[in-house]
Design a protein around this nucleic acid. Structure first.
Lengths: 197, 197
DNA sequence: CCCATTTCTTAATCTAGGTTATTTGTACCC
DNA sequence: GGGTACAAATAACCTAGATTAAGAAATGGG
């Protein structure tokens, strides 16, 4: 089972770089498996994100709580996704993101320290993370544009396309906290949309 | 003068990696200087972003135009900033960002092709771009959180802190297109704020 | 299987910010 | 230096989405 998880992460990496068996072994050795039960936290705001997590099963969510107590979801991470508080992870200072599990979840953790060592020892890993950071940057920008230019209904549709597996598995209030509306308004939109068919 | 520009970009890079004189020379050789006059374009939507630009003087802006014809500014790039359409640059497919000059501007261009070659030849450059992409990612996320959780007035204040040099040099309508309000509403906010002192 | 908690829906009311329109101010260009 | 084009201000009115409140439905833990 742990073996299966290792295959998943190696397949994820193989999309961008090719590793020798020795390099694979070296990498696997640095990973710490961890189980996070539903509603438990991988990371709290005001903590330092020592690790980046790769999800092998379940689903995590990263969110902030604003001054009025409202939650804003930055990212969901179902299986095969990477997640961390990037600010805290790269600066190793305390961050403002909470990461918790919306269902029982398994992750493989890589510490920043080991990651940086890996960059020195096997530059291909620096390439891998350079590439996935470039891609995250693109999707973060895309989302910012969507928030600036789309209506709530359009953002909901976009969400459904982006996270198709999540629509029926996560509470609607989480979707609302992601697209930037109140749960009440999302409910109203869905009611109107279902009328029209 | 071109020498001065080269010093600027080398100093920018030296913040994160150390280069030998030979490596510096190799890098400089790959750069193409370009002048963009006020209101002229470095890149149009529907073009492929062949280059990433480093601004040595003046100021660029990157923006999209939505389906209703409204402009949304993603980034301003005064001197010492890097700018490109990241999606188009990494995929080499056509993008949706326009980049133009809000005043006469000088840039140094690095093509994606040369950048990737540089990553193969001198891994330190892959490190440099890995680091600045991580940092852009952090600021993009920060801005997304701000858009989800702050009022227009608070976003205006945040803008003033983030781009202090721009407040008096760029048109207010550009600031409005960045913080996500109409120029009319920004004008109203400023009037109210100045009343209170 | 049942109770407690959380989630979802509906509806009335409210407001931040948008829209439209007009006026005034400013900058550049021949 | 005067006209054209763009930028900013002001004000009346409008709407997408928030707030508040209350009931209905679903879920999960024991």
């Amino acid at each position: 089972m742990s073996q299966a998880n290792h295959q998943t992460i190696l397949a994820n990496i193989a999309r961008h770089i090719e590793l020798t068996p020795a390099e694979q072994a070296r990498f696997i050795q640095l990973l710490t498996p961890k189980t996070i039960k539903r509603k438990q936290f991988l990371l709290n705001a005001q903590q330092v994100a020592r690790h980046v997590a790769f999800v092998t099963a379940g689903c995590l969510r990263a969110y902030t709580i604003d001054d009025n107590g409202f939650e804003h979801v930055l990212q969901f991470a179902p299986a095969d996704w990477w997640i961390t508080d990037m600010y805290s992870f790269i600066s190793q200072h305390e961050g403002d993101l909470n990461i918790d599990a919306i269902e029982d979840t398994e992750v493989l953790l890589l510490s920043r320290q080991d990651q940086l060592q890996l960059f020195d020892d096997i530059p291909k890993f620096e390439r891998f993370f350079r590439i996935i950071t470039e891609k995250s940057m693109v999707s973060s920008r895309k989302r910012l544009i969507d928030n600036l230019s789309l209506t709530a209904q359009e953002r909901y549709n976009t969400f459904c396309n982006y996270y198709p597996t999540l629509i029926n598995t996560i509470p609607q209030k989480q979707i609302a906290a992601y697209i930037g509306v109140t749960p009440e308004f999302l409910s109203k939109m869905r009611a109107q949309a279902s009328k029209k068919g």
